[in-house]
Computed example of a mutant assay.
Amino acid sequence: MTTDMSYTTEEISKLLKISKLTVYDLIKKGELPAYRVGKQMRVDASDLEAYKTRAKGGKLAAVQTEAVQAPSHYPISPVSSSKNTLVITGQDVSLDILAKHIEKYVPHYRPLRSYVGSMDSLISMYKGESDIVSTHLLDGDTGEYNLAFIRKLLIGSSYVVVNLVSRAAGLYVQQGNPKGILGWADLTQPDLRMVNREKGSGARVLLDEQLRLHGISQGVLSGYDQEESNHMSVAGKVATGEADFGVGIEKAASMVGGVDFIPLIQERYDLVMLKKPENQIWIEQVKRVLQSESFRNELRPIQGYDLSQTGNIIYET
Rank of each mutant, 00 (worst) to 15 (best):
Tyr115Ser: 03
Met119Lys: 09
Ser121Met: 12
Leu122Ala: 13
Lys127Asn: 14
Gly128Met: 12
Gly128Ile: 15
Ser134Tyr: 05
Leu137His: 14
Leu137Pro: 06
Leu138Gln: 06
Tyr145Pro: 08
Leu147Arg: 15
Ala148Ser: 15
Ile150Val: 15
Ile150Phe: 14
Lys152Met: 09
Leu153Met: 15
Ser157Glu: 13
Ser158Cys: 01
Ser158Phe: 00
Val165Ser: 10
Val165Asp: 07
Ser166Trp: 04
Ala168His: 08
Gly170Trp: 05
Tyr172Asn: 04
Gln174Arg: 15
Gln175Leu: 13
Gln175Pro: 03
Gly176Phe: 14
Gly180Met: 08
Gly180Ile: 11
Leu182His: 15
Asp186Gly: 11
Asp186Ile: 10
Thr188Val: 15
Gln189His: 07
Pro190Gly: 09
Asp191Pro: 04
Leu192Lys: 06
Val195Trp: 03
Val195Tyr: 00
Asn196Met: 06
Arg197Met: 02
Gly200Asp: 04
Ser201Tyr: 09
Gly202Tyr: 08
Ala203Gln: 11
Ala203Glu: 13
Val205Phe: 02
Val205Gly: 02
Leu206Thr: 05
Leu206Pro: 10
Asp208Met: 07
Asp208Ser: 14
Leu213Arg: 14
His214Asp: 00
Ile216Glu: 03
Gly219Val: 02
Val220Trp: 00
Gly223Cys: 07
Gly223His: 09
Tyr224Leu: 11
Gln226Met: 07
Gln226Asp: 06
Glu228His: 11
His231Ala: 10
Val234Asp: 00
Ala235Leu: 03
Lys237Tyr: 10
Thr240Leu: 09
Thr240Arg: 14
Gly241Phe: 10
Glu242His: 10
Ala243Asn: 07
Ala243Phe: 03
Ala243Ile: 06
